[in-house]
């Protein structure tokens, strides 16, 4: 009897060890299979980056998968900085950035392809009476020179300044247009577009910034220098708070067939309609 128990224990232990190894090797063979099959357009496209691009890239991914049902499309919303690191380190096929690449990033083997333009909406709570802010007022609010809503035509309440984390493309775009790089005094530093919108929607004294494509009815976008945050105004340049949505790839390195086909799809004229339906302004 003792013997049988031991044998059983041994078998179980061996199975566990074997299963662990099998799990590891299993994944590798999966990957191999994906790579080798891509010429028949089955496989996977992984994208990683900007949370502002969620609507646009989500819509593109869905439409693309509907046409190519052999390809699995994934999007990992981590923020522009993370997406750029991810594509550089080979952790995804296409990086998504809601800011143009910096010169040193281009020098380090990355290529950008502008997919669309997006406005950065300055958002306040719907209960806030303020309707218009000039770029200077916005800059003063973010650098702490203006701290009360009454100074910009609102009620007597301390302004709660909401910003994004340092790697955010939205933050980069916002701070470069308003000229507030490194001098913002934030009350909260949140890590995604959705968090900013939720927080602003819950606090009547809050101000935040978020991708125009993601702004919902929960918050109110103020006009900037009397120009409404609308697609047409972003396109003709009169709405100055804008930045590009960029697809980032590794320079000189061919994409897998699946990733290339998605890339072509996303930059085609056909995709323009999907992009504008998702709230951004296609460049084609």
């Amino acid at each position: 009897m003792k013997n049988t128990k031991k044998i059983i224990a041994l078998v179980i232990a061996l199975v566990i060890v074997a299963a662990t190894f099998a799990a590891c090797t299993g994944k590798e063979t999966d990957k191999g299979a994906n790579n080798s099959k891509t010429d028949k357009l089955t496989g996977a496209v992984s994208t990683d980056g900007s949370t502002s691009m969620e609507n646009v890239i989500g819509a593109l991914g869905e439409a693309y998968m509907a046409e190519n049902n052999g390809v699995t499309f994934t999007y990992n919303p981590t923020g522009s900085g993370s997406g750029i690191s991810a594509v550089k380190e080979g952790r995804c096929d296409i990086g998504l950035s809601s800011r143009a690449l910096k010169d040193d990033e281009k020098a380090n083997g990355l290529t950008e392809t502008t997919l669309a333009l997006d406005g950065i909406a300055v958002i306040v709570n719907p209960g806030n009476a303020v309707k218009d802010l000039s770029i200077e007022q916005i800059a003063d609010i973010y650098t702490g020179k203006i701290t009360n809503w009454k100074d910009v035509g609102g009620s007597d309440a301390e302004i709660v300044v909401i910003g994004r984390e340092a790697g955010s493309g939205t933050r980069d775009g916002f701070e470069s247009v308003t000229g507030t790089k490194d001098s913002c005094k934030l009350r909260q530093e949140l890590t995604s577009t959705g968090d900013v919108i939720t927080t602003v929607s819950q606090n009547t004294a809050a101000i935040g910034y978020a991708s125009l494509a993601s702004v919902s009815e929960k918050v109110k976008a103020v006009t900037v220098g009397s120009v409404e945050a609308a697609e047409a105004n972003v396109q003709n340049g009169s709405y100055v708070l804008q930045r590009p949505f960029v697809l980032v790839t590794r320079t000189g390195e061919a994409l897998s067939a699946a990733a290339q086909s998605f890339f072509d799809y996303a930059t085609s004229e056909k995709a323009a309609e999907i992009i504008s339906a998702a709230g951004a302004i296609p460049v084609k």
Partner: peptide
């Protein structure tokens, strides 16, 4: 709130854990 202020009860603060978690993905 995740802003690197010196701690005070009603201020936005950042913990050791969140300092790592919030910046790791885009740091270099």
């Amino acid at each position: 709130g995740n802003v690197a202020n010196m701690p005070s009860l009603f201020q936005s603060v950042r913990f050791l854990t969140t300092a790592v978690a919030s910046e790791m993905s885009y740091s270099s």
